[in-house]
């Protein structure tokens, strides 16, 4: 009885995966321009997007976190919904706005990196705002009163509060970045995955996998996992060291 028959098939599949791993490592170490162009674009789009998300999300998160204003509850619902927004839906909405017949069609932004940035801003702003709000809310009211009582103006008070909650706010930024660097739906729809122009890591993985270029797809996958690992490591560190007021 050839007892090794089932192992033969497994071995065949393993060989496919193994050769993909080898190819991936070769691609990364050889510094293939195609690969690094994609990685660089991914990082650039998501960094710009999270930068804009910070500008909008941190103030909004601060306002939600410190409490009462007209429409706070509604804003909170919008932010919470936004935090669970499927990227592909965000992409679809931005696509509709930017398409030729859409309200912003004249800007001719569809299938460009600005369009991808806009879509990713939509995805990451609620994340940044939501996590910031939670961090700000954990700063005791008395601390803000204390600052106010020492003569802080409203913005000096806000600055101090954000500084006191800085770990939480950093966690918010990291969460916002993590949410967009790995998403594929939105950038695919509004970017179009055009080589040399709007092709990012996630869209490239989809394409290469479909073409059967598992090595390239996996190489990009490794890098994405690496980035995700670093991000989550950072997030965990920030969250664990952020428990200052629980004394």
């Amino acid at each position: 009885m050839p007892a090794a028959t089932p192992l033969y098939f497994t071995g065949s599949h393993m060989e496919v995966i193994w050769s993909a791993v080898v190819e991936a490592v070769q691609l990364i170490t050889s510094g293939a321009p195609y690969l690094f162009e994609i990685i660089f674009l991914s990082l650039r789009v998501s960094t710009v997007a999270v930068g804009i998300a910070m500008i909008i999300g941190i103030p909004v998160g601060y306002l939600i976190g410190v409490g009462r204003f007209f429409g706070r509850r509604l804003t909170l619902v919008i932010v919470n919904t936004g935090m669970g927004l499927p990227p592909v839906v965000a992409g679809l909405i931005v696509f509709m706005f930017l398409s030729r017949s859409g309200p912003l069609g004249d800007l001719r932004l569809l299938f460009s990196t600005p369009a991808m940035v806009i879509a990713q801003v939509f995805i990451s702003t609620p994340l940044v705002a939501g996590v910031t709000a939670a961090a700000i809310a954990s700063v005791p009211l008395e601390l803000r009163l204390q600052a106010r009582s020492l003569g802080a103006s409203w913005w000096q008070e806000a600055l101090l509060t954000v500084t006191e909650a800085r770990r939480g706010v950093m966690a918010a930024v990291v969460a916002g970045f993590g949410g967009i660097i790995s998403e594929v739906g939105a950038v695919m729809i509004v970017g179009g995955n055009i080589e040399g122009s709007t092709r990012v890591m996630t869209t490239a993985i989809v394409l290469e996998a479909r073409k059967g270029n598992f090595g390239t797809a996996l190489a990009l996958g490794f890098i994405l996992i690496g980035i995700a690992f670093v991000i989550n490591g950072l997030l965990t560190t920030l969250q664990q060291s952020g428990a200052r007021y629980e004394r």
Binding site: P140, E142, L145, Q146, S149, L150, G151, T163, E164
Partner: peptide, 13 residues
């Protein structure tokens, strides 16, 4: 002209 001290000192980092 004023300054306050509260029940809990709430010192800043």
């Amino acid at each position: 002209m004023m300054a306050a001290v509260f029940q809990k000192p709430y010192l800043f980092n």
